[in-house]
Design a protein around this nucleic acid. Structure first.
Lengths: 229, 229
DNA sequence: CGGGTTCGTGTATAATGAACACTAACCAAA
DNA sequence: TTTGGTTAGTGTTCATTATACACGAACCCG
């Protein structure tokens, strides 16, 4: 079956920059292309938008199909439409970024033949299309956004220590933070629920665990208070 | 001539939220549709992306064709892809917002048959498609952005008084600012060039005029200082 | 039980934000 | 020319927030 239009139409795709955090570094999930163009190169997971799905649905579907990820934090980044960004034909892509708990989503099955792998953000291969551009924009957006929205928690296990949280901010923002000031600030926001649980299997004093309390956050917003690191 | 594709493709459009500032209020430029759907309704200026132009080019072209505007500040907002946002067929639109100096761009010629007019932001007609949604998002974005980027100047004449600038921020942010604190802050940024010119034709003491100094701003950025109101 | 490692905590000082009122300049109208 | 009306322009004080900084407690392991 074919579809006819009176004017030429750009193809429309979605691409996702998927961030994860491990013990060391911020990571990005890439897939290896097994079709031309850029066959064998690494690229952002993504693909064509189908005619009966929203842009977000398309992004989530591609994530599921290419990387096995579901129910991740997902937000639109920007749309890229350089005329020659795809050598085959005109392709406009709506870029998204996702935050995943690497601990929860250990499994990484690419249901089609391609490979998928995490790469350290400072250790990336060169990417297909304009995907390095998109990735850079996503990183900047993430850096900005974590400072005024509590999205960083999406990268941590549900229960985490304050040191883990500080490490997250230091890693994303790429600068060191003062331990005491950080704890003062984050606790004063009142959006962390202090648990009666502690780290286990550590060779030193175990840290108390906390959980992000979405309800407290909503309440905070209604009072016009701003989350800000 | 027709174009054939093996899969159905969404149509791709651009739409622009054009902001202007007059003596009273923040204004938005709308056009009146003379074709179905939503014939006779007001809508954001916009139209189809052609196969050989970038998204930004398309936005600028549509602005020129429908409103006569050229060389305005233009920035991508977000992309809207609800499946039923256009009753005719699947249409995905890349939304932009523009800031114009209403003083410079008095002329408002719609080269096609439609009407174009400024509407106060608090006095809008109901809009075609999901354009009210887009407009609301644009307003929020503008409110955020003026607070950490010097884009407000794009709405003022090249030479302006500090009172005009304060009025701009008060209007966009929809809250009152303290006169002395505002002046202290904005001057301390060192991005305003003090001119030896004053208002004319005012029935009271004439205010000194200033000009935004882009070079000083760039220098400021390089030193890691942040613009912030 | 000693060494190694991370956890958890408070205070003092500097910088920034917020509140606040009067005189100066200019025009217009009497 | 005087008076009234309107906006311009200007500093200080106090409260709040940001920054810098060090050591004992807890726990594991060998």
């Amino acid at each position: 079956m074919t579809f006819e239009y009176s004017h030429a139409r750009p193809a429309l795709t979605v691409d996702c920059v998927v961030f994860g955090l491990d013990q060391r570094k911020l990571q990005v999930l890439l897939i290896q292309r097994d079709l031309p163009p850029f066959r064998g190169d690494w690229a952002l997971p993504g693909g064509f938008v189908q005619i009966d799905e929203t842009l977000e649905s398309a992004a989530r579907r591609e994530l599921r199909e290419e990387t096995g990820l579901e129910q991740v934090y997902l937000e639109q980044l920007s749309t890229y439409g350089a005329v020659d960004r795809d050598p085959r034909e005109r392709v406009v892509t709506v870029a998204w970024y996702a935050l995943v708990r690497m601990s929860d989503h250990r499994v990484m099955a690419a249901t089609d033949a391609r490979d998928a792998a995490w790469y350290g953000i400072d250790d990336l291969p060169s990417l297909a299309f304009d995907h390095d551009l998109i990735l850079q924009a996503a990183q900047k957006r993430l850096q900005n956004k974590v400072q005024y929205q509590p999205i960083g928690f999406e990268l941590l296990p549900k229960k985490f220590s304050l040191s883990q949280l500080q490490f997250l901010y230091e890693t994303i923002l790429d600068r060191e933070l003062d331990k005491r000031n950080f704890r003062k600030k984050i606790l004063s926001l009142g959006v962390l629920q202090e648990l009666d649980e502690y780290e286990t299997n550590v060779a030193h004093r175990a840290a108390r665990l906390y959980r992000f309390d979405r309800r407290q956050y909503q309440r905070m917003l209604k009072q016009g208070v701003h989350f800000e690191i």
